[in-house]
Amino acid sequence: MNPRIEVVAVDCLMLRLFDEIAEANMPWMLAASERLRTAFGAQLIDLVPSYTTLMVHYDLTVLYPAQARALIAEALIDLSPSTRTSGQCHVLPVWYDLSVGPELSLLAERSGLAVEEVIRRHSAREYEVFALGFAPGFAFMGLVEEILAAPRLSTPRKKVAAGSVGIAERQTAAYPVVSPGGWNLIGRTPAKLFDRHRDGYSLMQPGDTVRFEAVSHAEFIKLGGDDTPLEALA
């Protein structure tokens, strides 16, 4: 870890902790988040974590840039990795099927694995939530096995169904709402990923872990899933 504090806007500083995406970053990122929230208190307007950085948006009517910088530096003194007792572990049911996850066949072809084996391997791992972004509740998770990695579609879909589960490079994610998207789709979850009436709004938070669990069509429907085929949305 080689922390650097960089200017990003009149009232924002970027704390850069790492140079590469890695699961091992997370305990440090969580610990730094916690320290920054405490250090800034009511002067913190937003803290935006991503894979290797924490963007601090502070109240410029109270803090000078130099003061904000000093607060960040002080918050990092003797930082130790979080013991991660705060992160929740979620199990997301997924109906893996070609009608809602057409790239299952593409991933099978690329990897030389059977479709069933692609499903087994995607649902065998526990993934870290690295960051939320793109849309409310959209969690970037990883890392998927190297053999399942695949680049984004060269032409993104105009419409991806809510709950769609996809892979891009070594990351996996689920779309909270209907949106355009370029990820390789492999299935659909009935889970409500973003809910304005839920405490904390987003089902998943940075630092949480997620496991996908294959369910049958019948179970998917019972859990409230919408099985409208992808092509019917276009």
Partner: peptide, 10 residues
């Protein structure tokens, strides 16, 4: 670059 937070006006 690896994705990171975007401030207003970036």
């Amino acid at each position: 670059m690896i994705s990171e937070g975007i401030p207003l006006g970036a």
